[in-house]
Design a binder for these strands. Sequence first.
DNA 1: CGCTCTATTGATAAACCTCAAATACAGTGG
DNA 2: CCACTGTATTTGAGGTTTATCAATAGAGCG
Lengths: 236, 236
Amino acid sequence: MREPTPRQGPVPRLFDSLTEDQYGEFRGQGITVKLASGSYLFQQGDPVDRFYAVTRGRLKLFKLNEEGREVIIRYIEPGEITAAITVLKDAVYPVTAEAVGETAVLAWTKTSLSALMRANSDIAIKLLNIAFERLNDIQQRYLELCTEQVDQRIARTLLRLMQGAGKKTDGGIEIDIPLTRQNIADYSGTTLHTVSRTLSAWDKNGWVKSGRRRITITNPHELVMFTEGSAESRFS
Amino acid sequence: MREPTPRQGPVPRLFDSLTEDQYGEFRGQGITVKLASGSYLFQQGDPVDRFYAVTRGRLKLFKLNEEGREVIIRYIEPGEITAAITVLKDAVYPVTAEAVGETAVLAWTKTSLSALMRANSDIAIKLLNIAFERLNDIQQRYLELCTEQVDQRIARTLLRLMQGAGKKTDGGIEIDIPLTRQNIADYSGTTLHTVSRTLSAWDKNGWVKSGRRRITITNPHELVMFTEGSAESRFS
DNA sequence: CGCTCTATTGATAAACCTCAAATACAGTGG
DNA sequence: CCACTGTATTTGAGGTTTATCAATAGAGCG
């Protein structure tokens, strides 16, 4: 009995505990927003007003420092949510959300989510779970940034992107996001030049194939070995 | 009408929404654990079984990488909680918690916290708030680690420690935690040598006074300016 | 007073960034 | 189909930051 609105994407994991009726009703309260590639859903410093679930495309969440350098916090894939802090308090978004490719999101107001939380206590638990997962992820990456060399971090970045947006092709697993060298640098904590050099080396190695805004991981296993292997197996 | 158990420290902010009776009852279900300085409350990889609030002293939360390098995630001060993920699922601790100085914590079981959450729905909200705060904090530090130079990060580390554990003295604000240069390095993402050199310079500057395991910030204002000032005002 | 842990400081080296220039690529409009 | 344009990528050279290595000095403790 879902489908009071036409199906527009995966059901966000947040709503796993809802019945189809409950989800249908809640979904009906949300507004679909279509975003052109590169447009901002919200920006760092804006007052928080909505809570979002991505249904198509993806969002890049990033922070800018004072000098305008961009650091990518994470990509929000279809079925994932963002800006959940909306429910809790008046705040400002701590990050900017930019659409990567043609993207659609569902947007709900503060009040609508609060009502849902009151009606279904599992939602708060689920939100808490998601928050802890993200805390874990960023803490792990913080560790890596502190202790690992740049090529190891780039390898990890590719594997993470593969995890979230990998598409099996005959040549390997393609990362289904148009990514520039700069984007990968912003995700790995380095510069586009270093990323370019590293990918070139791995291209020759046969670990990845990459072109303009396109990366295919041809040998995920070696890449994993490289992230684990503590520096002895640096490529020659 | 609190005090079914003797008062042993501040009421954790998590419990703000409880009445004194409710808090008293819940507190009665917790067990006080005393920790000698340097002992571990739990370790990275242990199965999660308890949820804790610090009542005296403090906990250092850190992660170790494969080579044994330590990275400090945060300090848990009296009145703060940790290991809240306990309530949610079977997991392993993603960090190690070590007592810094003589430390006391209250420990509750999974079931006891779950019961409280069912009885008082504000607890889940409060937990969510705390999780978001910590997410924010680590994301901000992740940004800083990506974009700032080491002396700027050390300055920020000192200011953060001052915020959490600063004690006004006649000479300035003393950080009331015994910290080695290595500790500060582990919190700033650098080495003890670099920290030592930097603190020496700032000692000559008159910004801080530091000795063995002891740091006093004599000029917080200049230190703040330094974190904001984008590199032009590097000390001579 | 010797032992251990911590801190300081210098010298050296490595990793990586910055700057610069050339090249490749994908559209676009003629 | 092709030249044109803007963006993305590659690659080299050189410099800076910061880690590493090594040696010494100081502080606290039994």
